[in-house]
Amino acid sequence: MDDILLDIKNLNIEFHDHDAPEHVVKNVNMVLKRGEILGIVGESGSGKSLTAMAIAGLLRRHDITTDGRIIFDGKELLGAKRSELRKIQGNDIGVIFQEPMTSLNPTKRIGWQVEESLRIHRPEMDKAQRYRLAVESLKSVELDEPERIYGKYPHELSGGMRQRVMIASAMICEPKLLIADEPTTALDVTIQMQIVKLLQRLNREKKTSILFISHDLSLVKRLCGRILVMHDGRVVEEGASEEIFTDPKQDYTRKLIDAIPKLEKPEI
């Protein structure tokens, strides 16, 4: 089997919701290997989230045009029919988002939402099987008392817990790729580290490839083997984590690294 899971060639994304078309992703190329954690960093507006949403098939279709190729597991996604795309969404590609507070439906129980991908992609499963898998999945994201969480509503959980629920729901079909779009931005620092460690463990244990999108270089450095730096819709630098941190080729990357707050000893 090919060890390349995701191959993006010359991806262009253009918005047409204003008078003048806006070119927001320009000729992006990237490759993600099976089992790899790839980080995409860049400031807001750099096109990193849009690239991720294009892979997940979550871009609106009526006022956005895309061009290029997104080959996932041997299948071309950009030109694929929606029905074909839906077979992949939630099944082979799981997504977690930036806002755990609003990414879950407020009127549905956690269990129902975690199981949703199973109901869609594993219709042969019965209720008991789904319940078992959902509880297992909640357990695997290190939530205490998963049986109790199963029956709760989103507003009864904290932000960190909700993001774990999101991960559990994205991982329940054991997808080949997990797209994490700024999953820690809305969380406080200690929770951020826990989520990063959790993603690391899931990657190790389930062999899920992860596309980790963040503007936080220090987090990306901890988690990802390889990093892609995006600026103004283009990939400006790409390389192994250490390489980028020790020897950035681009000014922009250097600026991003300099922007990481450092813990310095106070001068006494």
Binding site: Q89, F97, E99, T102, S103, L104, N105, E116, I120, S169
Partner: peptide, 25 residues
Amino acid sequence: KDYVRTAYSRGNNTSKVLYHHVLRN
């Protein structure tokens, strides 16, 4: 809203998103 995007990311089609998620809210 964000939860609708989540629903689509799980492979829901438009009518499932509408009847299972949007309508109740």
